[in-house]
Computed example of a mutant assay.
Amino acid sequence: MSLDGIAILGAGIFAKEAHLPALAALGSAAPKLRAVYSRSEKSAHDLADAAVAALNLNEAPNIYHDGDQSTDLNALLARPDITAVIIALPITLQPEIVLISLAAGKHVLSEKPVAPDVKQGLALIKKYNSLYKGRGLIWRVAENFEAEPGFRAAGAAIAAGKIGKTIFFKSTVVNYIDKESKWYKTPWRTVPDYQGGFLLDGGVHTVAALRVMLPEQLTHLSGFASLNKDYLKPHDTINTVVRAGSHFHGTVEMTFASPTKTRPVSDGFVITGTDGWISVNQVSVAGSTAPALRVLIKSVVKTEGKPEEEKEEIIEEPMKGVEAEFKSFFDKISGKSDGTDIGDPLAALRDVAFIQAALNSEGSLVDLIDLVPDSP
């Protein structure tokens, strides 16, 4: 398959601050950005201007927006020189735009979450599998935590047995969101028309990271959800107890309602095994504006006739998940896949299912496997 040009659909914060830098970092490994689309003409112009600066372009990508048939989304999708689209639109709009883009014969990389809820996600995946997958069209979900080298390194260390057999885990996410936050000021987030609010939009990252690191799938959940800051409706906090695989369990808690910008000292992720443990935390890197993921591995060294000793290993990987997911998507289209499963829509839907279960559990045990069958 050949990969010509691409278009970005959606001109919000993430397109400017994550997508454009990722394309710039890939350089010649990325296809040409030929067009941008937004519902408003102004935001489309803003993204095009940002692209010129970020990608050092001699000419701006073509601008498409609603309100004029000659420059609307259908006009963009009719262009034969655009092979693929990257979609970063409001959560409730994305499933429809994914299908429209596929119907136009474009490969699609759509931002997480895959859909607002499990029901819509299953329907979307079923349509893709039945109508477009057999035509060779590729659809992937852009979940950058899944692609982060740090989380994947932690998963590889666990798979290699560096902490023995996994026995329990925990994940803690504490975020402070006020009304002045650039993320809160996005209109579709200010009055969300989807379950969970920030918990869905941001919470799937945490679940995806666990999915990459843990050796077995999350299977059951019991938890509670609450709203602690009225402007973060419908929910801003969840606390859950989770089972994974056949033998281990853990806790996952996340909130976007911290009362202070400062956060309590706590590891973001800790996975414990019979012979050690792994923690993963985001850290600042001296001399760099980009953070990194620090993977700390503590393992027990057992030597016959000697006392047990602890061995320490530290892995630090720059955070470049968006760049990694873009490269995986472009390579897949070009037939150069490295065998990774980055961006599988069904896996991304399991992340949504976790959040949905946590929001609705009210202490009851929810079977996560039943929510998302292997064959929608």
Score class of each variant (00 low, 15 high):
residue 327 K to I: 00
residue 304 E to A: 15
residue 277 W to P: 00
residue 327 K to W: 00
residue 311 K to H: 08
residue 297 I to D: 01
residue 315 I to C: 00
residue 284 S to C: 06
residue 328 S to G: 08
residue 326 F to N: 06
residue 340 T to L: 07
residue 274 T to M: 08
residue 261 K to G: 04
residue 336 K to Q: 09
residue 324 A to L: 14
residue 297 I to Y: 01
residue 306 K to Y: 06
residue 263 R to G: 08
residue 261 K to W: 09
residue 291 P to G: 07
residue 299 S to P: 00
residue 317 E to G: 04
residue 337 S to P: 10
residue 311 K to Q: 10
residue 264 P to A: 14
residue 279 S to D: 12
residue 261 K to H: 08
residue 275 D to N: 12
residue 259 P to Q: 05
residue 327 K to A: 02
residue 330 F to P: 04
residue 283 V to D: 12
residue 273 G to L: 07
residue 341 D to R: 10
residue 336 K to M: 04
residue 319 M to W: 03
residue 342 I to V: 08
residue 305 G to I: 00
residue 259 P to V: 13
residue 319 M to K: 01
residue 338 D to E: 11
residue 261 K to F: 08
residue 327 K to F: 00
residue 260 T to P: 03
residue 304 E to F: 09
residue 342 I to M: 09
residue 317 E to A: 13
residue 341 D to H: 11
residue 305 G to D: 01
residue 262 T to P: 02
residue 307 P to W: 08
residue 271 I to S: 03
residue 264 P to Y: 05
residue 285 V to C: 07
residue 325 E to N: 12
residue 276 G to V: 01
residue 270 V to W: 03
residue 337 S to D: 13
residue 261 K to N: 09
residue 341 D to K: 09
residue 320 K to W: 03
residue 277 W to R: 12
residue 292 A to S: 06
residue 283 V to K: 07
residue 314 I to M: 15
residue 284 S to W: 13
residue 275 D to Y: 05
residue 290 A to D: 13
residue 281 N to W: 03
residue 319 M to N: 05
residue 288 S to F: 12
residue 307 P to T: 13
residue 337 S to I: 02
residue 327 K to P: 00
residue 302 K to A: 08
residue 286 A to T: 14
residue 269 F to P: 03
residue 312 E to S: 10
residue 276 G to C: 02
residue 337 S to H: 11
residue 303 T to A: 04
residue 290 A to Q: 12
residue 316 E to L: 07
residue 310 E to T: 11
residue 263 R to N: 15
residue 305 G to N: 04
residue 328 S to P: 05
residue 297 I to W: 01
residue 333 I to V: 07
residue 312 E to M: 10
residue 298 K to A: 02
residue 323 E to D: 15
residue 301 V to Y: 00
residue 313 E to Y: 09
residue 260 T to R: 05
residue 260 T to V: 09
residue 315 I to V: 14
residue 262 T to I: 15
residue 260 T to Q: 15
residue 284 S to G: 06
residue 290 A to L: 09
residue 321 G to M: 12
residue 273 G to Y: 01
residue 320 K to E: 15
residue 294 R to I: 14
residue 306 K to C: 02
residue 332 K to N: 03
residue 270 V to C: 06
residue 337 S to L: 03
residue 279 S to F: 00
residue 266 S to P: 02
